[in-house]
Design a protein around this nucleic acid. Structure first.
Lengths: 187, 187
DNA sequence: GCACACGGAGAACGACCGTTCTCCGACGGT
DNA sequence: ACCGTCGGAGAACGGTCGTTCTCCGTGTGC
């Protein structure tokens, strides 16, 4: 018997795998039950509706994303390198097996128009990413405008890597960010 | 009675409106029939399956996109401005009522994992956009690497504008592209 | 005027999905 | 040993969807 906490993580982890691989709407709750090994009754006790489960999955991804960014930034030596570490993080991610683009962008495209809660979760995630980059940019003594430029390159790299299946875009996005940073500091 | 050609465009135009506004999977074929004013029997005579209709809609969007880019590029005075016209085109688009992001990215997130034909249509579109920018960049005498940078900024601008509902990102993406172009030409 | 092919409206069909319910076996307290 | 409770397995329910079929009115060729 699983306590609620472990059942919760089993369900969200299973749902995350399935939703990310196939899209939310093409995964039935029964598939989540089979993947998680948790009965439907239990799942509905923990998450009253599929939408709740989707939101929980996205919340988990936001957490993982923040942790991953922190880990890569921590390995950078200089504040400038910390900003650029965003792209090293992306590079490693793009090369993972089963990379299928940004789960938030995918969910937004699929459900943003019909589920305000999902749309809001996506907005919050992107907002928190932007704030995170802003902090790094400020610590590096760069103008605020650089933060949004880095964000745009990172978002563009994610969708482009997903669609073209070319992981090298991370490196090229990094090079673009380097050029923008260099252009932003007074020579 | 409509001839096949007009019925085709009525159906694809209606499907385009509905799919773009609500997502593909949440629009039933019956809603397409109502919006287009074309009977189900006729629709299935023109497009043997919903997937065929989706692919046709995406093909139409690829055409519209190319036309729009051409129109904006034609108004630019210099080759450099032609490259940057991409972002003016995006700016105008982001400000349109009902803007919901890039239909290709949305469709890819929703169906890319389950429909190879949709995934392929999206890839072809993004590929043709990249080639188009490459041409502009070459005509402006800029290094090839600038083309992908412009593409990444444009893609990032589209997803960011859709999610944050902030049309101003087009201007900031343009500014970033200007900086990258300036950095790419030997001073 | 009539047979006939055609297209539209919408019912029908089979499949699936989110959610709930039923049934039954297992386990803990006395 | 017995009773009550809990949770799991899976059937059931109501709804929707993609696709096909049926029926009927219309218009055309003779």
């Amino acid at each position: 018997m699983l306590d609620d906490a472990t059942a919760r993580t089993a369900v969200t982890a299973a749902a995350d795998r399935l939703f990310y691989a196939r899209g939310v709407q093409s995964v039935g709750m029964d598939a989540v039950r089979a993947e998680a090994g948790v009965s439907l009754k239990r799942i509905y006790a923990l998450y009253p509706s599929k939408e709740d489960l989707v939101v929980a999955v996205l919340a988990g991804r936001t957490q993982q994303w923040a942790d991953g960014l922190d880990r890569w930034a921590a390995e950078a030596d200089t504040p400038r390198e910390q900003v650029l570490a965003v792209f090293d993080f992306l590079d490693a991610w793009f090369r993972e097996d089963g990379f299928r683009g940004c789960a938030f962008i995918n969910s937004f495209g699929e459900l943003g128009a019909t589920s305000p809660r999902v749309a809001e979760a996506v907005r919050e995630h992107k907002e928190s990413f932007r704030r995170y980059v802003e902090e790094l940019v400020q610590e590096a003594g760069l103008p605020d405008a650089v933060a949004l430029q880095v964000v745009l390159l990172a978002e563009g790299a994610q969708t482009t890597a997903a669609i073209t299946r070319d992981a090298d875009v991370a490196r090229q996005a990094r090079a673009a960010a380097e050029a923008l940073i260099d252009a932003a500091v007074p020579a």
